[in-house]
Structures are given as C-alpha cells and as structure tokens.
C-alpha cells in the first residue's frame, strides 16, 4: 500500500507544489513581531471576538451547559448594555445531540449561528452512511453549519479521490448549511500533506464553506505554521478559481495576543476581504474571556481579575 501511497502523494504534491517547513516557520515568526496598539488593537480584539466559534465538545455536555454557552455567545460581556464593548460571537459549536438545545436557547433568528460537529467526530471512523445520517440529523435539528472531519485513514493510504468524494457527499447532505472541513493537521504531520489535503477539500467546497485545522481532540492543534499553509492554499485556490473559501484554526488559541497574530497572518496573506467572520473563525472557548479582558484593559487602562468576566465555557 505504501508504494501506491507514495506515488499518488508525489503526483498530487507535484501538482499543488511542496512546502518548505523551515521557511514557513520563519515567515510566521515575523507575524509575532508586529506591534498592534490603541485603535488598531481594539479593532483587532473586537474582530477576533466576532469570529469566535464558542465551543463545547464534551461527553458531559448537557442542555443546561449549552444554554449557558449560548447566553455567553449572544452577550460575551455581561456588563455590556448595548453590545458596544463586544459584539456577539460568530457561532456556538456543539455535538449534534445538543443542536436542538442550542436552537431553543438562541431562538429561530439569532445573530449567533449554530455549528455542529458531525461525521463521527473526532475520528471519523464510522461507515459513510452513518456519517451522512449524522449530518442530516444535525441540519434537521437546526444547525447552520456542519464541521466534518476528513477520512485521514483514506488520505494516509493514498486514496485521495475517496477523501474528496466523501467531502462532496457531506457537502450535498449539508443542503443550505455551511460546511467546515477539518483536516486534523496533527495526524497529517507534514506541511506538504496539509497543503495537499487543503486542496482536496478546497476543490469540493462552495463559496462560504471553510477548511479547519483540527478537532481539538489530539495532542497538537492550530499553529501559526499550519494556519499559514492553509491560508496560502486558500489564496492559490481563490486566484485560480475565484472561489473564496474561509479558514478556521481551532484548538490551542487561548490568548488575545495569539488571536491577533493569527489575524495578522490573514491580513498579510489574504487581505481585507478575509477579515470577517464569514471567512475566518476561531474554534475556541477560553479565548473569548481573554479578548474581553484585553478590551477592558484598553478601555480602562487596568487589567481586571479573571473572575470579573462571566464563565460559561471551559478550556478548548
């Protein structure tokens, strides 16, 4: 199998081009040296908050926990009267069984969208029919967005067409719902593989869909490096086809500083048109309160204690 895999991979890599790991790391290190102050910082912090997919993905999730999450998503800053200090987040992200609860909590016409992981998240190791049924169930229960996982087993054994066909099947099952394709970068291991997987997904997606780094369930999650490789792929695909796909790094982004650095990568790679929550998201939960904390610091000049901000999530 490995010979087949190597050949298929090499052929595909030749088509989309390789990635130099040292060069990528060097490039992204420069984003960290950008210095964002005053108005630019406030703008960046609010933008980041508006891009958060506030997430809870645990076996112990309950409708009550999801309701608390939804309330936080609608009004991140509990002392905020008119929604001036912090906008609502982009979406809540839950398991399919919690979608109905989220819909009840948010109401039918909410500014906050409901994203549901599906397709036997996080492993994806279920028959395709089962995965598709899960997608349909989540959409039926009211999900606006579906976060699917790719079939890493198929990818690593060189069955790229199968990986792509499964994405197409899930896309069709989504109907009107937007699709986010999780590559699970830590299981692909190399930047070359991440670039290849990005293109497999990009070529199957519709405008308004996303590619996403990780499930948050493995040892390493979103990094500036894999974010950059995926942004580069999105740019190449857009310039070649005109189809604009969004990007969602997920897991491991816990601080406002990190989020701003990711946004600088977006600004300098894809430009202004991607600085919106219809094209860029953060899969995160504890990030939100750090953004609020930094916004409050910009407003008052002093850092507040963590307990001053309402807690409705746990780390992700």
């Amino acid at each position: 199998m490995s010979a087949v895999r190597t050949l298929a991979f090499r052929r595909f890599l030749h088509e989309v081009g390789p990635v130099d790991a040292v060069g990528v790391e060097e490039r992204v290190a420069k984003y960290g040296t950008r210095s964002i102050k005053r108005q630019a910082k406030v703008f960046g912090l609010k933008l980041a908050a508006s891009m958060v997919d506030l997430t809870t993905l645990e076996g112990k999730d309950t409708p009550g926990k999801v309701a608390a999450l939804c309330a936080k998503a609608l009004r991140p800053d509990d002392r905020d009267d008119g929604g001036m200090s912090c906008p609502p987040v982009a979406a809540v992200c839950v398991y399919p069984s919690m979608v109905a609860a989220a819909r009840r909590a948010l109401g039918p016409r909410s500014p906050v969208r409901i994203a549901s992981v599906a397709t036997a998240f996080p492993s994806g190791q279920a028959p395709l029919a089962t995965r598709l049924a899960e997608v349909r169930a989540a959409v039926g229960a009211g999900a606006d967005e579906i976060d699917m996982v790719i079939n890493r087993g198929a990818f690593l054994s060189g069955e790229f067409t199968r990986v792509g066909d499964e994405i197409s099947a899930v896309r069709d099952a989504c109907g009107q719902a937007a699709l986010k394709v999780i590559l699970e970068t830590s299981e692909l291991e190399t930047y070359d593989a991440i670039r290849a997987a990005s293109f497999i997904a990009l070529r199957r997606l519709r405008p308004g869909d996303f590619i996403k780094t990780s499930t948050g369930k493995t040892s390493s999650n979103a990094t500036l490096g894999n974010n950059q490789v995926m942004l580069d792929a999105i740019r190449d695909h857009y310039l070649a086809s005109g189809v604009a796909i969004g990007m969602k790094p997920a897991g491991g982004i816990r601080t406002a500083k990190q989020a701003l650095t990711f946004l600088i990568a977006v600004k300098e790679t894809l430009g202004d048109a991607w600085l919106t929550n219809t094209r860029y998201r953060f899969g995160a939960s504890s990030l939100l309160n750090d953004l609020l904390r930094q916004l409050e610091k910009e407003r008052t000049g002093a850092y507040q204690a963590p307990y001053r901000f309402s807690e409705a999530t746990e780390s992700y």
Binding site: R34, S35, I36, K37, R38, Q39, A40, K41, F43, G44, L47, R235, Y238, L239, S241, G242, A244, L263, K267, E268, L270, G271, D272, A273, L275
Partner: peptide, 16 residues
C-alpha cells in the same frame, strides 16, 4: 474581472 486580493486599510495599524 479576475479574482483580486485587497490589501487595503480595513485594519490599519496605529504607529508603534
């Protein structure tokens, strides 16, 4: 009409 990227001033950095 071809796709273009916009590197504009939507998020202008303050002097630092």
């Amino acid at each position: 009409t071809a796709p273009e990227l916009i590197f504009g001033n939507l998020w202008e950095f303050d002097p630092s």
